[in-house]
Amino acid sequence: MFHLYPDLLNLYGDRGNVMAFARRCRWRGIDVEVRQISLGEKVSFKEADFLFLGGGSDREQNLMAGDLAARKEQLREAVEEGLVVLAICGGYQLLGKYYRTLDGKEIPGLGILDLYTRAGRERLIGNVAVEMEINGMTHRVVGFENHAGRTFLGDLKPLGKVLAGRGNNGEDGFEGARYNNVFCSYLHGPLLPKNTVLADNFIALALKRRGWREELRPLDDSFEKAAVDTMLKRIL
């Protein structure tokens, strides 16, 4: 697993996503190596099974954008080849075409996904519940959003439908985006530890790429389920 720029993008408990992925592998006896990637470090995305990209404050986001711009082609190739990616908030926006600021300036993104973001005056903040389909089953996922950007999808599937909260842009009722094995979302909270279905989905996808054909061994998720149910009961 590659965790991109953890020393830079350490807002909002994003590292919880990394912990959840790694723990849930190890609890099943699957070896996992978490590599923390720093700015400028030489890496090949071909070596990764799962790549996590979080968000940060404006200054840190600019540093990350500059660094990833230099790796753009490599990342695009990996995504086309099915690299499993989770991008949250700022990382999500960065994969798109551009971010338009309030005064109309367009900051180019990596252009890997067909989406764009424009800044809004009000930040969209609060608890969110999303309904999404994973492996043909409908699941409810909860998290917390905090973003000024409004993201609009082109020829892309959203991650899910907003049941409570604002989602991508507060207008169209959708949250996140999906393309190949790339999953984007505005939900932190963090997303993976309590929403185990998502965490296990990433593990399964990553293993499948390595030729693993077995089902994942189920774990006792009673704490996680209770945490999700508490929030669903409250916000729906």
């Binding site: 408990g13 590292r15 905090n146 932190h188 963090p190 530890p193």
Partner: peptide
């Protein structure tokens, strides 16, 4: 309202 700080 955001308790994600618990993960930090």
């Amino acid at each position: 309202r955001d308790i994600s700080w618990l993960w930090d």
